[in-house]
Amino acid sequence: MTRTGYRLGNAARADGHRLHVHERLGSTNAEALALARAGETGPLWIAARMQEAGRGRRGNAWASLPGNLAVSVLWPVSGIDPERLATLGFVAGVALAEALDASCGTAPGCQPGAADRSFRLKWPNDVLCANAKLAGILLEAESLPGGRRAAVIGFGV
């Protein structure tokens, strides 16, 4: 693992987030879930420079070429009602659209302004720019031994 080119912000580090960066992984979500099964509780970010077996909703393949962002976060959810876990996907979508807006500003083909955001959400898990899919989000949750639960939110940009 190396951290070159990826880093957590100061607020994330202060909140106890950690980061593992890999040159190649099959799936950042699969890696995060495997770590959760082994006892990892998070919050832990898993990034891959190349993701070779990414997946989207309903098992669809997610292509992730070098230069794209493939990252997942293992989030501690033991205190969250299972019925509310699905809302993490919406929170993640809004956060990703806002992060893209803050990082990139107005993208080509997108008009700035409150009525027409540069990046917008398409239910249930896509971020669009100029009506084209730019990013996808995959939320997975699992019950673990000992009554623990794990949620992983994957981002492909």
Results as ranks from 00 to 15, higher is better:
59 G>E: 07
88 L>H: 10
84 R>D: 15
103 S>H: 10
62 W>R: 00
87 T>A: 13
71 V>E: 05
71 V>M: 10
106 T>V: 12
83 E>Y: 14
77 V>T: 06
90 F>S: 08
100 L>W: 04
55 R>E: 10
73 V>N: 01
93 G>C: 09
75 W>S: 11
65 L>W: 13
67 G>T: 11
98 E>S: 15
71 V>D: 02
107 A>W: 07
92 A>E: 01
95 A>D: 10
58 R>V: 15
59 G>K: 11
104 C>P: 02
103 S>F: 07
66 P>H: 10
66 P>E: 10
80 I>V: 14
69 L>M: 08
67 G>K: 07
82 P>E: 12
97 A>L: 01
88 L>V: 07
60 N>S: 13
72 S>L: 06
101 D>P: 00
85 L>C: 09
106 T>C: 02
90 F>R: 03
71 V>Y: 04
100 L>M: 08
99 A>F: 02
76 P>F: 10
84 R>C: 14
96 L>I: 10
52 E>D: 13
91 V>G: 05
96 L>C: 05
51 Q>P: 07
74 L>D: 00
80 I>P: 04
58 R>L: 11
104 C>G: 12
91 V>R: 12
99 A>D: 04
56 G>R: 01
71 V>S: 09
62 W>Q: 05
102 A>P: 02
109 G>W: 00
94 V>C: 13
99 A>L: 04
91 V>W: 11
104 C>D: 06
51 Q>L: 05
57 R>V: 11
67 G>E: 11
74 L>K: 02
68 N>S: 15
109 G>C: 00
